[in-house]
Simulated assay, not measured.
Amino acid sequence: MEFLTATGLSSAAGLNAYIPMLALGLLDRFTTFVNLPPAWSWLSNDWMLWILGVLLVVEVIADKVPVVDSINDVLQTVVRPASGGIVFASGMGAETVTVSDPGSFFASDQWVPVVIGVGIALAVHLFKMGSRPVLNAATVGTAAPVVSAAEDGAAVGLAAAAIFVPVLVIVLIAALIGAFVWLFLKVRRRSTPETGIL
């Protein structure tokens, strides 16, 4: 279950870096549903919650504007995978050594969950980043707000499922992949002119 929770959170981070981090922080701070390990308790710090909230608003707005969304995706190439590593490790309950002792961190297996989370979030992010320009070009930018809203909804759904019903993560990830592939193929078919044989 911990692996499904961590996978759902890191997949959500690949779509929007701040939704799963903010969800973990808020739920740890104000409820008993989430109890972050001590090494990750900074996620529920008041200042961190405000910072994540502001960054989430900026991300949500920027991701809905054609061209700006692609620039934002390039900038998020570091942020989303880093967020994925953080939420995967915190979802797995990983205890990490403080940054002041990186030798101990890498000598142990504590870095493994972080790397797995980075990889999952990076894969989702790269797919999102690669498909958005194609969708924007094929629809003259009209797809940007619709697709972005769907991605935000998927990120919220994945984060909620990961925390409350981890088994649903498998279904949601499969549905997300299917929806992306279907939309990508549909737009690609529409943008490629059919050539007839004379």
Rank of each mutant, 00 (worst) to 15 (best):
S70Y: 10
A12I: 11
L27W: 01
N16G: 04
V97M: 05
N45A: 11
D28K: 01
L55D: 03
Y18D: 02
L43R: 02
I71L: 12
E2G: 14
A12S: 15
G14P: 03
A13W: 10
N35H: 15
D73W: 07
E2Y: 14
W47L: 03
L55T: 02
S10V: 07
V54R: 07
W47I: 00
W47F: 09
L49I: 01
G84P: 12
T32Y: 08
R80N: 05
L24K: 06
L56T: 10
Q76P: 12
G8R: 03
V58K: 07
D73G: 08
L49G: 00
G93F: 12
F30K: 07
I51E: 04
S11W: 13
Y18N: 03
Q76T: 11
W42Q: 11
S90M: 01
V54F: 06
F33E: 15
S44I: 00
V78W: 10
D28W: 01
L9V: 08
L4E: 15
M92K: 07
A39M: 01
G93A: 12
R80A: 05
F3I: 14
M48L: 10
W40V: 00
A23V: 11
F33C: 12
T7E: 11
G84K: 09
S44Q: 04
F88I: 10
L55V: 01
N72M: 09
A62E: 14
A6G: 13
K64V: 05
A13S: 14
V79H: 11
P66R: 04
